[in-house]
């Protein structure tokens, strides 16, 4: 699961600038976020509705889209619909979901649509900058809360060999998810488990893939039942 392209991921973040489109229906939040992001990130476009977002993303072809989960317009699908509408660009444009709702249903829906990560809107500018670089480098960004969702949805027992690999997390992936849920950074996870950061990123990407591709019907059911965590 190596998703690197050009500049390598890992501990040394690429200093090259990342082109970003911000999609959020609150102008105040968009301008605040723009001011918070560091100089290595260029905001090339903004959008407030589903239709605007799809048009701007198609026109700008950014590296990363910061996407609010809840958006007006379209068919009411919000962020999920934007990703579906930009499906052709999914190989070059990465989506990072931003949410204030915390509802597992929304977050899991947008991840399964193709977003590479999920962060809450309350995180700091430095953290979000870091997350944007990480996503631009092809990695997945898991907040503690998303890791908690994953653990809750997949269960905390490691996979048997007989199980379908998509429906369960391996023992190592579980360990990584647990540490992220406990508030560990990737670097700290690597240190704790005596593995490289790259390996941690590989595990997280694998979990993300399972989250997106697993046909487990329980996953959707679970998310629908759990309105909030």
């Amino acid at each position: 699961m190596n998703m690197t392209q050009g500049t390598g991921p890992g501990s040394t973040r690429p200093a090259s600038s990342v082109r970003v489109v911000i999609v959020d229906d609150h102008a105040i939040f968009r301008s605040g976020l723009k001011a918070d992001l560091d100089a290595s990130i260029h905001v090339v476009g903004e959008a407030a509705t589903v239709e605007q977002a799809i048009a701007v993303i198609a026109g700008q072809r950014p590296d990363v889209v910061l996407l609010d989960v809840h958006l007006p317009g379209g068919l009411g699908g919000g962020g999920r619909e934007v990703i579906a509408g930009s499906a052709a660009l999914l190989s070059t444009t990465r989506f990072l979901a931003l949410s204030v709702s915390d509802a597992a249903e929304d977050v899991v829906a947008v991840i399964r649509a193709g977003a590479r990560g999920y962060v809450t809107k309350t995180i700091s500018g430095a953290e979000i900058t870091d997350a944007v670089h990480r996503v631009a480098g092809g990695d997945a960004v898991f907040s503690p809360r998303l890791a908690g969702f994953v653990l809750d949805a997949f269960g905390t027992a490691p996979a048997d060999i007989a199980d379908d690999e998509l429906d369960k997390l391996s023992a190592r992936e579980l360990e990584v998810m647990r540490l992220i849920a406990r508030g560990y950074s990737y670097k700290e996870v690597a240190k704790e488990l005596f593995i490289s950061i790259k390996t941690v990123e590989t595990h997280v990407s694998a979990v993300l893939r399972k989250l997106q591709l697993s046909s487990r019907h329980e996953l959707t059911k679970w998310a629908a039942e759990r309105r909030l965590l």
Binding site: T122, P144, R145, A147, G148, L151, D152, T156, A181, R182, G183, L229
Partner: peptide, 9 residues
Amino acid sequence: NAVEVVTVG
């Protein structure tokens, strides 16, 4: 100071 809680189970 913010206290972030994540619960599983």
